[in-house]
Amino acid sequence: MNSFNINNIIRPNVKAMKAYSSARDEFQEINDDFVFLDANENPFNNGLNRYPDPLQRNVKSILSKIKNFPANQILLGNGSDEVLDLIFRAFCEPNQDNVIAISPSYGMYGVLANLNAIEYRKSLLNEENFQPNIEDIFSKVDDNTKMIFLCSPNNPTGEIIKRDSILGIVNRFNGLVIIDEAYIDFAMEPSWINEIKNYPNVIVTQTLSKAVGLAGIRLGILYASQEIIDVLIKIKPPYNINQLTQLKAIEILGNYDKVVDETNTIIEQKDFLEQALAEISFVEKIYPSDANFILIKVDNANERYNQLIEKGIVIRNRNNDDLCENCLRITVGTEDENGKLVEALNSLKY
């Protein structure tokens, strides 16, 4: 039975440290009538001469309404990679602790583990349905296992992890379970952010890079208990989300109906692609996908990848990933882009 206690997993130096306090942390009231002489800024107004809101309150307020989640339990970072790195640095002791991740999955988990001198243990998914092997995961857990990473929907396989599987992990593990939901907007299953109040060891990460269409501004999101957020804020760099990023996020999130429409169009185009791919003779398998991409198994992934490059179409060759021999990952594009892909595939030598 889970007996998670955050105080048992915080690094001692992080627990003891005092967070840096910026000028805008100490005085947060925004009033154009005030004279700000506290942050050593250039006083000549060009629209960007002042430091951005270190707490990103306006962005979090909009996200809070969209996700129906408390704003004070949201942390923002420069892409999901930054918030994932903060988790490592707050809770994992270098050269001592370890983390576990399903495989194949997002490659940055392993990169960040290595960067932070944390042992990275992989647990292969069940090959027949790309779901976690729970007993295999727990065979790798020991007293120094701090975190388990679950990407859901998973990249590159595309399938969402079944709720029962996640519950089987969350309820047994006394460390943190990080559920990476970068592709959740394309799935029919609900997000796990609504479960955080019931499972304090769950952290959910999301991004504006996929469905929201803001990969260029690099804004990642972390949802967690207040206790976890407080720890991460202690080690977060000041002013880490710049003013231009905040303004663009506010602009696009302010018209969320458009985001929903685009997401629905991508899902419709995915259905079209799946049907078209089923007619291609060298496509041996189309894996179920809850994301904005499709993983397919072909006769020769390297050859087919290079043939498409020659026709000016770039997809992702996942041939070297665990369980993905001769697999290609295809991102769903616009109707025109998808049509060009299908035309190119049909023109390839069989």
Rank of each mutant, 00 (worst) to 15 (best):
G77P: 03
G333E: 09
N255I: 09
V59R: 05
A117P: 00
V177T: 13
I161R: 06
G339Q: 14
V141S: 02
K60I: 08
Y120G: 03
F88C: 06
L219K: 08
A23V: 13
I229P: 00
Q246E: 14
N144I: 09
E181S: 08
T331S: 12
S123Q: 10
D25N: 11
F186C: 03
I193D: 02
A182P: 00
G168V: 13
G220V: 04
P153R: 12
F69N: 03
F34I: 15
Q73F: 01
D142M: 04
I193T: 10
Q243C: 02
K258E: 14
S3A: 12
A39E: 14
N302F: 05
S165F: 14
I309W: 09
S347D: 09
S209L: 01
N95E: 11
I217R: 05
L232A: 06
Q56F: 03
Q28P: 00
Q269R: 15
K248W: 07
L84N: 13
L273I: 15
D336P: 00
V342T: 02
S3P: 00
Q226W: 01
P237Y: 08
E343D: 07
D180T: 11
A23C: 15
F173G: 04
Q73L: 01
D38P: 00
R163P: 00
S191Y: 09
N42W: 07
Y223N: 09
F282T: 12
N302Q: 11
F186H: 08
V204F: 02
I235G: 05
I102V: 15
I87H: 01
E41Y: 03
K15H: 06
G158N: 05
L86S: 02
E227H: 04
M108A: 11
A301V: 09
M188F: 07
S225Q: 13
E26H: 05
P238Q: 14
F69S: 03
F4M: 10
L176Q: 03
D185R: 13
L37G: 08
A117I: 05
L150T: 01
N292S: 13
V212M: 05
Y120E: 01
D25M: 10
Q269D: 06
S21R: 13
L323H: 05
D53R: 12
K311Q: 15
I193P: 00
R316S: 12
L86P: 01
E159N: 12
C92G: 07
A101E: 07
W192S: 06
K349H: 13
K146M: 03
S191T: 14
M1P: 08
I196Y: 04
L48E: 13
K285N: 14
I221Q: 09
F88H: 11
R304I: 14
V59K: 06
E262G: 02
G333D: 10
S209W: 05
M108H: 09
F69M: 03
N40R: 09
N155C: 12
D164G: 00
Y305E: 06
